[in-house]
Write a protein that binds this DNA or RNA. Structure first.
Lengths: 202, 202
DNA sequence: AATTTACGAAACTGCACCGTATCGAAATAA
DNA sequence: TTATTTCGATACGGTGCAGTTTCGTAAATT
């Protein structure tokens, strides 16, 4: 099953057009947000006919879900030898994505349509948060081996707390510098919880 | 200045109609969200003419901003004699508001229109978060006096971290029970940071 | 009483979008 | 070549909303 035989006659669907509409979708999502985004606008920006979009997706939600699902960023697991530096790198990486217009609008979309379109949260969790959660666990395990933190510290819990703080700072401290600073302070407090981690992150 | 003389002739504006449109605005905001909310729908639900709304507000954003600004919940500062119980009460109170449809949609609105309508975040910060931040500081000061936590713990920082965690859990753990539980666990970790607070919150 | 302003309801214009259909051209298989 | 399918572009009818105006009525001042 799941054969992708090309035996059917006729002109095949254009991979370029498909790519163009996905790209235009992500751009517009970041620029105007989910609700203000029209199919007409996506088609126009992609240089594609509206029918070409409707042939692939039944709704805007489907299109957007597929577009954000296909986003793949490289996840680098830092290994500088010091927990402080490793975490700094992770924060920087997260900031770059989360503070972007696309990152903001994606989160807003997830919250506002949480009840009507739970698949958005699901995709974001699976494709974005989950891999970073595991990368974070690796970093913390290494720090445990170096006795920088206690062995009983739950990486998942710390990651969730850190993500929440980032999200909060994203909303109420939109300024990138104060964002980074307040995330660092909160994380410093967090890690003191079950560790000998008391270095100044500043 | 700022006189509110009633010397002008003619029928005065109806306070009842005004109240009805504000109420309908909050209801619809919680039910369908900011973008899907039409002025027609607000007027219909409030039993008010559309012109009556436009006479008071120039835009939907103005109306919504005024509506959420006028929301006033009683803030009770718990004083049970134990930090654990006090915090439990605060979490319960926050959950009741934040987990409600109105709370969710308000946050979503703030994020998605952060650039176009920064006044929403401003109002939410000033009228909702700020007072709770101060109430939290009172609770923590009492705990310091009882030597339940270290005197060097920054209440504002802890509050911000806690708020962020609540927000995160709101999105990715919409279930009220798991929400409360994960908030408790994170907070427990947080308070271990600079205190002798190691009681099981569960 | 006369005037003035607000009221709810409804009608109205204009616009943006949705989803479908149609067109000639292009790209494939048989 | 012929049949089939997709392509971009455009047109179309339908719907919903914005914002204004009109109407008869209600509530205030002078």
């Amino acid at each position: 099953m799941n054969d992708i035989h090309k035996k059917s006659p006729g002109r095949p669907r254009s991979a370029q057009s498909h790519q163009a509409m996905l790209q235009a979708t992500l751009e517009l999502l970041g620029e105007v947000g989910f609700d203000a985004m029209s199919i007409d606008a996506i088609a126009a920006r992609a240089g594609v006919g509206k029918a070409t979009i409707y042939r692939r997706y039944a709704s805007k939600a489907e299109l957007v879900a597929d577009a954000i699902e296909r986003v793949r960023e490289e996840i680098v697991i830092p290994d500088t030898g010091s927990l402080k530096s490793d975490i700094d790198a992770l924060i920087q990486s997260a900031a770059q994505i989360t503070l972007s217009p696309l990152g903001r609008q994606t989160v807003a979309m997830i919250i506002s349509s949480a009840s009507s379109n739970p698949e958005f949260a699901e995709i974001y969790w699976t494709k974005y948060l989950q891999p970073r959660r595991q990368a974070f666990a690796v970093v913390l395990e290494r720090a445990k081996a170096r006795h920088e933190i206690g062995a009983d510290l739950d990486p998942g819990l710390v990651f969730d707390a850190m993500s929440g703080i980032m999200l909060y700072a994203l909303i109420f401290q939109p300024n990138p510098e104060s964002w980074t600073e307040s995330v660092r302070r909160a994380l410093n407090l967090l890690l003191k919880g079950a560790s000998s981690f008391d270095a100044e992150l500043h």
